[in-house]
Nucleic acid binder design. Structure first.
Length: 612
RNA sequence: GGGGGCGUGGUGAAGUCUGGAGUUCACGCCGGCCUGUCAAGCCGGAGGUCGCGGGUUCAAAUCCCGUCGCUCCCGCCA
């Protein structure tokens, strides 16, 4: 590359640019500017060369005119995509007829007096123009290139805005931002802990926090009264489109307040984030429904209420039915319920596919009925149903000609679950243009499993609505726990906490946690509760889930700067990785023999081996 | 742990069902031409272990088995 004279002014200050490429407009005409960024596109006409210079603010067209000789010819014609360059030039109006209306800076261009290549680039492993979908593994391996693309950089900026909005609201509301440790003792929150071995105490482990739950309660006991944190959380469970092993939450907690104040605060936060990300929602308060209502009408504790299609209980229509399948279910205490799927227009094969999908998610069967023009029902089971029964179905589901009705008869929990899934399957709107927030409140203390066994629905520090009810009828007891749902995604959850040591002990007892067990696992916390704990309540909101929905992204990886793949790997840095024997020895850890054996087998078949 | 989808020059796709020469398209890359383009254009060229391993076959990108990777889902995330 030809040697260029150095600009000593720039060298002194270290400042390579005086303005952003994407902010130049007609009011900048005549301005002498210094730009620095990347060559996003080049159009080399042999004489004049145009480059679209991109930096974090956007694009501007730079004109490299041979008469101006902004750099030696071999440098100019040698420019390639993603070369990092600095340009000194003048902003001028584009000639008549060459304005580019697709570009915010399209009315102007920068004619270069000087161009300096700051850094060259090898040909890229994939194009950055956003015209094709690139394999995700490749994108993650080159995430630093991927984030030069509009999609990712837009999402990173949106995420930043969202977090700033959250901080602003929390600050305005008098919350104190407090950090809590990320190397902690294992907390009882249900998910698998990520463990970190201790060198100083061999054989002992820290856990990464699944949430700052107990610490924020300690902050309340400590008199902070209003706490928040943009907190990193870790849960070692399998990945989904909306789940990563590490994730960020807006975590907050307040003392001397309760559920209403928490929900009001969440709504303030959510509205600010929505507005700051350029969306609008109506002034009506967020819809609120109980867990029971959500399950009953939508078959889900995270109902997508962008569309109606409520589940309707049709059991009463079949109290005296001759249809054995329904009669048997009702005799067993189950129910018959249905949804009106609307105008699905499915052929027989499509309807049968729905049946097998329902069976896949646990239903014994699914009855479909298509409403004919004359109002009659076309269905494989129609012949088993009386005219009255058919009429009751049609009126119960508000059937109109062309509608497809889906009916399930089974244990009520199964019916609701299956119809809830079918509802999403046939009714799910594409995209997220509409924003439907729902507060789901009054969660049960326990979930009742298939076998009737009770398992806690929330962590054991959640206050029951009524302690007596919890003791005497645990399976129906309600807790002061609540979720925020957006478009069928759980954005976050929270609860009023137990602030009384005696009640906490009782709750542990009901949940089957023995005194010794409780004392051993978090005796320190039980003791803290005994020093004048204020009533307190809080919430935690998933940042990536929220931002991904607002950005119209199908998964949270798109709004996470450096996400992991579904198998927990980072293709860029190669984590997780094996470590040297010395490191393990310091920690007092051995890798299990069968794992080492598997490594050896791998090494036999693969040329490259990892140092262990 | 289980089910589905995908894997083809650097990128994206078609080809796979119904086996017959690494064939095609777009982008990128290299060389040449080109002074108002904006996905610049025109001409020429290079580039492949069809993810990997095994099997069936005269013959495998294509069929079968296994395996790895990415992804969606069930379980899991009380």
């Amino acid at each position: 590359m030809a040697q260029e004279p150095m600009n000593t002014d720039l060298m002194k200050s270290g400042l390579l640019k005086t303005t952003g490429a994407g902010v130049l407009r007609e009011h900048d005409l005549g301005a002498e500017v210094q730009l620095a960024g990347w060559v996003a596109r080049r159009r080399d006409h042999g004489g004049v060369i145009f480059i679209d210079l991109r930096d974090s603010t956007g694009f501007v067209q730079v004109v490299l005119n041979p008469e101006e000789a902004p750099a030696p010819e071999d440098v100019l014609h040698g420019l390639r995509i993603e070369y990092c360059v600095q340009v000194m030039g003048t902003v001028r109006q584009r000639p008549e007829g060459t304005v580019n209306p697709d570009l915010p800076t399209g009315a102007v261009e920068v004619v270069a007096q000087r161009l300096r290549v700051l850094s060259t680039s090898e040909p890229l492993p994939f194009p950055l123009d956003g015209r094709t979908d690139i394999d995700e593994g490749l994108r993650l391996q080159y995430r630093y290139l991927d984030m030069r693309r509009d999609r990712v950089s837009r999402n990173l900026r949106a995420r930043s805005k969202a977090i700033r909005a959250m901080r602003n609201v929390m600050d305005e509301q008098g919350f104190l931002e407090v950090e809590t440790p990320t190397l902690i003792a294992s907390t009882p929150e249900g998910a698998r802990d990520m463990l970190v071995p201790s060198r100083l105490r061999q054989g002992q482990f820290y856990a990464l926090p699944q949430s700052p739950q107990l610490f924020k309660q300690l902050l309340m006991i400590g008199g902070v009264e209003r706490y928040y944190q943009i907190a990193r959380c870790y849960r070692d469970e399998d990945f989904r489109a909306d789940r990563q092993v590490e994730f960020t939450q807006l975590d907050f907690e307040g003392a001397f307040w309760g559920q209403e104040e928490v929900l009001a605060t969440i709504e303030l936060v959510a509205r600010r984030v929505v507005a700051d990300l350029g969306h609008s929602i109506g002034p009506d308060p967020f819809v609120r429904m109980t867990y029971a209502e959500a399950m009953e009408s939508y078959g889900s504790d995270k109902p997508d209420v962008r569309f109606d299609m409520k589940i309707v209980d049709l059991s009463e229509a079949f109290t005296d039915t001759d249809f054995k399948a329904f009669a048997g279910v009702l005799a067993d205490g189950g129910s018959v319920r249905g949804i009106n799927g609307g105008q699905l227009g499915l052929a027989r094969a499509g309807l049968d596919a729905l049946v097998s999908e329902a069976q896949d998610v646990g239903a014994k069967g699914l009855v479909w009925m298509v409403v004919e023009d004359d109002g009659s029902l076309r269905s494989p089971v129609a012949k088993f149903l009386s005219d009255t029964e058919q009429a009751d179905i049609a009126s119960g589901l508000s059937a109109t000609p062309g509608d497809t009705l889906l009916i399930v008869a089974d244990h009520t929990n199964t019916v609701l679950d299956v119809l809830g899934r079918m509802r999403l399957h046939v009714g799910q709107p594409d995209g997220h243009d509409e924003l439907a927030f729902v507060f789901v409140v009054d969660f049960p203390v326990f979930e009742v499993g298939e076998d009737g066994a009770l398992s806690p629905a929330h962590h054991p520090f959640t206050a029951p609505a009524d302690l007596d009810a919890l003791v005497h009828a645990p399976e129906t007891a309600v807790s002061k726990a609540y979720d925020l749902v957006l478009n069928g995604s759980e954005l976050g959850s929270g609860s009023v906490r137990i602030h009384d040591a005696a009640m906490q002990a009782k709750v542990f007892e009901v949940m089957g946690i023995s005194d010794e067990d409780a004392e051993g696992r978090f005796g320190w916390f039980l003791e803290a509760l005994r020093y004048g704990t204020p009533p307190h309540a809080g919430f935690a909101l998933g940042v990536a889930r929220f931002v991904s929905i607002l950005q119209g992204e199908p998964n949270i990886r798109e709004v996470i700067p450096f996400p992991k793949t579904q198998t927990g790997a980072d293709p860029l840095t190669g984590s997780p990785s094996r470590v040297k024997k010395d490191q393990l020895e310091e920690l007092g850890i051995c890798v299990a023999p069968d794992v080492v054996a598997a490594w050896a087998e791998e090494a036999d078949s693969d040329p490259p081996t990892t140092d262990t």
